[in-house]
């Protein structure tokens, strides 16, 4: 406390926002991102076969779930194991809304989405207050409850029970017909755009004030309250937000598959999305999406050998040991090291 530096205080506060010197780098990055976006949307539809495209589509769907799990983990320190009930539930509601309530596809889609958002909000309101472990168990319990309720004999007329429901719609949804959604190539473009939009949306939220508040609450909730913050609402908003991403994935899934199976509500969907998030790395949007795609292709490869469970287990262990921060986290720290090394050589 003795040597008080009175001059530098104001100067040192300012530079956080002003990133000098990199004015050229930002447009270049943008151009590179735009190129990746366009090439990624178009190239696979030209050069990849239907089978690979289907795996890619499944991978991106899983990636969107992984994205929602990862965001909540990374920003709020909460592990959710209930992605499946949102994913399968939204698809199921969509089917019920069309089959039983005779709604047009577009209206059915909106109704299913709204019901799921209300469900997520009510559930979130009850559980985001609890500690991380209780939160995880409660999402698990709620998910299991829903997935068993769907199988109840009394609800069979609605839910189709173990048989699931066929979803066939006439007319168009967002200007696309059922056949368009079923086409692997067309659906790839839809998935590609949806994955990017959700990735960008969550990335932007992470960088916003809400993201900063969530991370501070994760770290020291009490101090946040003692700094005048409401710590409940931000977490509830985050919970609803990630479930919106999961619900969109669920709806896209049924539009593509034309079918809702009870498995889409099962616990393995939730655990797969968690694994995909850990494989890709939870610290951004690219990691979870990439994790989903890797997971999807790996599952296929493992399945071809008839050793899905065993090889998945081994892969998880290898991933977590070799890439504790996921593929993207691992690669980016390597790139950073190389840059550092290069700079040291240069100087």
């Amino acid at each position: 406390m003795s040597n008080r530096t009175t001059t530098a205080a104001s100067e040192r506060v300012a530079p956080l926002g002003a990133i000098g010197g990199s004015s050229l780098r930002v447009p270049l990055t943008l151009v590179a991102v735009a190129i990746v976006f366009v090439v990624g949307a178009v190239a696979p539809t030209r050069f990849a076969g239907d089978f690979a495209l289907r795996l890619g589509n499944e991978g991106l769907l899983l990636g969107m779930l992984a994205l929602s799990v990862a965001f909540l983990m990374n920003q709020a320190g909460l592990v959710a194991l209930g992605a499946a009930s949102i994913y399968g539930g939204s698809g199921l509601l969509f089917a019920i809304a069309m089959n039983d309530w005779n709604l047009t596809p577009m209206v059915a889609l909106c109704v299913a989405f709204l019901i799921i958002v209300v469900y997520a909000t009510v559930l979130g309101a009850l559980i985001v207050r609890t500690n991380p472990l209780a939160f995880m168990m409660l999402t698990l319990a709620a998910g299991e409850m829903i997935s068993h309720a769907v199988m109840l004999e009394a609800l069979r007329d609605y839910t189709g029970g173990a048989d699931g429901l066929v979803v066939s719609f006439k007319g168009t949804v967002f200007g696309m017909e059922a056949a368009d959604f079923a086409s692997p190539a067309r659906f790839w473009v839809v998935m590609w755009v949806a994955a990017w939009l959700s990735g960008l949306a969550l990335w932007a939220v992470g960088r916003s004030r809400l993201g900063a508040i969530l991370r501070a609450v994760r770290e020291n909730e009490e101090r946040m309250r003692f700094s005048g913050f409401d710590t409940y609402l931000p977490r509830l908003i985050a919970y609803v937000l990630v479930n919106i991403v999961a619900a969109v994935a669920g709806l896209l899934h049924v539009l593509n598959a034309g079918f809702v199976s009870p498995e889409s509500l099962g616990i393995s969907v939730s655990t797969n999305s968690l694994v995909a998030a850990l494989m890709g790395g939870i610290a951004g949007s690219v990691g979870p999406l990439l994790g989903g795609v890797i997971f999807s292709f790996a599952q296929d490869e493992f399945g071809a050998r008839g050793l899905t469970q065993l090889l998945t287990g081994i892969a998880i262990v290898v991933f977590i040991v070799v890439f504790p921060r996921g593929v993207v986290g691992g690669l980016s720290s390597m790139a950073w090291l190389r840059k550092l090394g290069g700079r040291r050589e240069a100087s």
Partner: peptide, 13 residues
């Protein structure tokens, strides 16, 4: 009771 993972400026700001 501070935010260990945030910089001093981040938390004060």
């Amino acid at each position: 009771s501070v935010f260990q993972d945030l910089t001093v400026h981040e938390q004060l700001y």
